[in-house]
Amino acid sequence: MSEPVIRVEQLRKRYGSVEALRGVSFQVQEGEVFGLLGPNGAGKTTTVEILEGMRTADAGLAQVCGLDPRRGGAAFQRQIGAVLQHTALPDKLRVGEAVELFANLYGRRRNLDALLERLGLADKQRAFYDELSGGQRQRLALALALVHEPRVLFLDEPTAGLDPQVRREIYEIIEELRREGKTILLTTHYIEEAERLCDRVAIMDYGKLIALGTPAELRQRSANTTRIAVRLAQPIEDGRLRQLDGVVDCRPISDGYLLHSQRPPQTIVALVKELEALGNELQSLEISAPTLEDVFIELTGRSLRD
């Protein structure tokens, strides 16, 4: 295997009494889209910001393109592009001006019109930053990350807070970058995003990687777990459902309950009996294959949205 583009070994970081990273290790190969999936506070942003050179790790190794992010200087900065969380541009800066500004800061003169065209911002060139919608701002952030044609892209929650429709627009852009062979590290707490965009996914929780593999490999880990979504006539304590044969997890969902079972036939029989005994009624039942969400639940006993 060739030299990895991103190399992280035993990374540790502490904020006061909180251990944000407790020994994180992974590698990202050239042309790979690598996802860090986990709930808020899992340590995804800390990991990415160490790799971007914005934070210093307490211990461990972080390398991007063979460079130390803290010491790489301008040579390092030219290799990476990033979409940050918690950032903004000046309100009265126009889209076209922002892209030109960043190109100048990198000393690059690529075809900026084509870049804006590609990100669907061509007709927004004259718009001020404070006139842009959330999706447009995020597309502009992507444009600024790409302006110097970096080798590695860091996308920290690139679709957080966007409508599903707008989110899909961003996915299409990322998929195009993936086809071009860009190396991308992205963080997300959306299962859909990780499954759809990433070649490999690392699941993070409380500052540790708890699983790593392709989405298919990870799902395979849960192959013996099945999702059973049920709708009942009357509400029921989820404690009762949890005690059913084969059930490893149960949680309420919008219009019923989601069970994870390792022996679906037994679980269903037990469920029907239990309902009969309680005088409750089963209105619908849906069985589906596991997703990364189920993998996460199985590994942590919690849902990503908790």
């Binding site: 971007e52 050179g53 914005m54 200087g73 301008a74 900065q77 030219r78 990476i80 990033a82 940050l84 918690h86 950032t87 903004a88 541009l89 000046p90 960043f102 800061l105 990198y106 000393g107 600024l144």
Partner: peptide, 16 residues
């Protein structure tokens, strides 16, 4: 204001 709004953060990633 640039610092307060996280605008400086963005410039930090560039060779500035």
């Amino acid at each position: 204001m640039f610092r307060e709004h996280g605008i400086l953060r963005r410039f930090r990633l560039t060779p500035v």
